[in-house]
Amino acid sequence: MNIRYAFVSAIAILLGAVLMFLPEKQLKIEKNPVDLLLAINDESRWISTDELAHSIVEKDPYFLLIDVRSEDEYQTFSLPGSLHIPLDSIQSPNYLPYLQQEGLRKIFYSNTSAKATQAWVLSKRRNLSNIYVLEGGVNRWVETILNPVKPASTAPQEEFDLYSFRVAASQYFGNSAEETVESEAPKKPMIQVSRKKKAAQGGC
């Protein structure tokens, strides 16, 4: 037997034996406090209701809406296509696979920004990335997207553009805004089809 092979085998066995007697070790996967504080002060976690409406209308496949409110609130009203993870179980390992999907933007929302921000901080602390908070939550959604307010007549053009987007979005989400843009359904033109008269039948 080759002496080199025997030597390498002995090292392998030794390392294996050490591994066998090493105690199990669970590393902390928490973000360090300084980074967490910097992340909390960073404003880039906010997603506005308009951005969200855009994403939904354009059928953007790369985001996941997460409702962190209670079960009752979720049943009463929720944003289209949202997943329900109550705030008290956001740390549960059952939901971890949803939050760990790297490619998806995970957007937390609650009635205001408060609970969603808590969920965001808890998740950030666990080093989850690509997570956001819906600014103003469901309340802002209802105010801006479902019931948009017409800007004053002196407002700049951008506000009118935004308003018309919101009216359209409101219609998209099934809530007709009060001032809907009048558009009559185009009448279908009647096409007279002239059928060839069949030749007189009968005879022989």
């Binding site: 092979y5 085998s9 392998a12 066995i13 390392l15 294996g16 034996a17 066998m20 007697f21």
Partner: peptide
């Protein structure tokens, strides 16, 4: 099994296989 025990076993299996 424990992770370490399995590692040891796998090393042993590897050496036997070699």
């Amino acid at each position: 099994m424990r992770q370490g025990s399995f590692a040891f076993m796998l090393i042993a299996v590897a050496l036997i296989a070699f």
